[in-house]
Computed example of a mutant assay.
Amino acid sequence: MIRTVESEPHASPPVLAAYSYCEAVTGRQARNFAYGIRLLPTPQRRAMSALYAFSRRVDDIGDGELAHDVKVARMEETRALLTRIRAGEVDEDDIDPVAVALTHAAGAFPIPLGGLDELIDGVLMDVRGETYETWDDLKIYCRCVAGAIGRLSLGVFGTEPGARGVDRAPEYADTLGLALQLTNILRDIREDAVGGRTYLPADDLAKFGCSAGFSGPKPPEGSDFAGLVHFEVRRARALFAEGYRLLPMLDRRSGACVAAMAGIYRRLLDRIERDPEAVLRGRVSLPGREKAYVAVRGLSGLDARHATRRAVRRRA
């Protein structure tokens, strides 16, 4: 897992153009993610953009208006492309800039590309319209669509030589992905419901009288919606606390990137906790200036040190 940024192979003009395309996709469609990766050295930032652009393609197939069978076929085509990328069979003059960039990134960093197979598996769960009875069931989905992204990202970041407990770094990266995904699920409750999707475990919905769903801007009559949200917020916070153990294992700028992205989502969680019904009225978000502030704190190490202290207290 340990490597140096300087080991990145030379990037030719076609490869640089492919990376530029991926960075444009990332900046346009992943504002929170983009705020974090701008803290990375250029080679790592490019590689993360390539990972995002490929992941975005998979998500767009799952979220699109295509017929079920067409979506499944497109997913399998994408999986076949991933097999070619893994084998290094994509030339730099290929017409697909995402494939070109990801092939180069996989040659520069020890990225566990099998995580993208997991992402495809997770999005196929969406295509099939799967629902989840328990948190253990939902965790399987979250590990595919978010935990895998954490482990892929760790392949780009690498770990610090001699870092204590480094063998558990993939586990912590995975857990941090779960924390981010659960926050996403809370933020998007209304949007997902309108789209016919329910992610929160049926057991939790029943416990708080919310099995009727969230088709409107108000909670189901007689439900304890605030109790449901606060219950899931506590679960997400516990995941963040566990996942933050990754931070001391990363170099300063990789740690800043992770702290910034996680910090943005933790602040979203704070807003959701303060006003649970806000997620039924629209998408909860942070203004750009607050995201920039979180990024600065991440680069200064403030959020990383604070989060690490909290993780240590929790472990104790």
Rank of each mutant, 00 (worst) to 15 (best):
G177I: 10
E290H: 13
G213Y: 13
G122M: 07
Y265L: 09
F109S: 05
C257H: 04
R3P: 00
G129M: 12
G147C: 04
A148S: 15
R297Q: 15
A148Q: 04
K207W: 07
Y141M: 10
Y172R: 12
A206C: 00
G150I: 06
S211F: 00
P43K: 07
A206K: 14
A241Y: 00
G301D: 06
T159E: 02
L81T: 13
H230D: 04
A67V: 06
M261Y: 00
C22N: 10
R309T: 10
L180N: 03
M1L: 11
G64N: 14
L239Y: 11
E8H: 05
I189E: 08
S12K: 02
G162H: 08
P9A: 06
P201N: 08
P287T: 03
R74P: 01
D224H: 09
G243Q: 11
L280A: 05
E191C: 09
M125A: 13
V279F: 11
Q181Y: 03
S223Q: 11
G213S: 12
A316W: 14
I272P: 10
P43L: 04
L119N: 05
D188I: 11
R31G: 01
A146D: 01
L186F: 06
V294Y: 03
D121K: 01
R313H: 12
A67Y: 03
G115Q: 03
G196I: 09
A236G: 07
C144Y: 15
A148E: 04
T198R: 15
M125I: 04
G88W: 09
G150R: 06
R86M: 12
D167Y: 05
D174L: 07
Q181H: 06
D192Q: 12
T198C: 13
Q181V: 02
A260H: 02
F225C: 07
D224G: 06
L186D: 07
T83Y: 01
V25P: 08
R74D: 13
R190S: 13
V58Y: 03
V294F: 11
R31W: 00
R128A: 15
V294R: 11
R57P: 00
R56V: 02
A193N: 09
